[in-house]
Design a protein around this nucleic acid. Sequence first.
DNA 1: TGCACTAAC
DNA 2: GCAGGTTAGTGCA
Length: 368
Amino acid sequence: NAKAGMDGVDKARVQQIVWEMSKDSAHFKNEQRKQASVLERIERMKLQAAAITPAELAAAGRFLDARIAGCEARRDLTRTWLHVDMDCFYAAVHEREQPELKRLPVAVGGMGMICTANYVARRFGVRSAMPGFIGKRLCPKLVFIKPDFAKYTAAAEVVRGAFRQLDPDFESGGLDEAFLDVTDYCTRTSRSGEEAATELRRLVKEVSGGLTCSVGVAANKMLAKICSDINKPDGQYVLPPSRAAIMSFMDTLPVRKIPCIGKVTEQVLQGVLAVSTCGQLLAPDSRCRLPLLFSEVAAGFFLEAALGLAATRHGPKTDTSVDPGRKGISHERTFRNMSAPAELEAMAKQLVEALVADMGEEDIEGRN
DNA sequence: TGCACTAAC
DNA sequence: GCAGGTTAGTGCA
């Protein structure tokens, strides 16, 4: 794991403990099943790759060259974007109220699942999305705090007040992060992107009573997001808005760092094309094969992302917690093994009732 | 239209 | 003893 705050962690020990506690679980068995199907998918795609003819490859090469030229012609380096990411947001909110927690290893969550951990806990290898009982084993003194979403929502509202000062139309990505187009702010105040980021961090700290965040500065949303992760916590990173700077940044960037490329896509690219960085993805041998092996949407996305291209303008509002533009609504629960019809029915009833209540709030009905 | 899968926080 | 919940998008049947 390469998340912020994980250096200095005894990784071998963490891996050993996680393995020991996992290897006989049903969850682990399911992970193995999923991994096997990923490997099958990679094998199928390798066969496809082997069947590509030189003529197909040459044609794809010409197609890609034209496509890249088109992308480059549209590259827009005139906008300045910030991506803000609050540091250990949930844990930080609790630490603000109980400063004594700052010196202790803290996990927000329960024995089932950890939502976030503070930096003291991360030193032990405790991290978000880890089951609490494994965290407790890695760090027996770990202090668990029950999540309090009302509290986080209130804190998020406050820091959003700071975001609004630099961009009234900022886009939230959940409670603890946001995209800001600060082009107009920079013009208005004669500030650079770097100065805007410094000011935003100062403002956030001021209005929130000490919460810190990390900020990325770049010419588009995707690059800003990648950059906000570089100097975490309480830091910032500026990627200059020049084609040369962006291309050299992308050249060594692992494809896994691109938002939307997760663990599976990373493995597929590695297994099928032997690609692990954006630079390798752009090499003629790899890029020509993209349209022959992936869907049009996927191939186009990989190409543009590797070139460091992404949205430079605000999209439609996506904050589904407050926006009527949502596309789905659901409830789900993880429950212990059970087969008695009455128990199953009771579980289904609970879920339906919770869903009906939420749908009532929004005044919506199902069609089918 | 529905499902499986991937991904994000 | 113990591995979350909510939403979105893609691709396929």
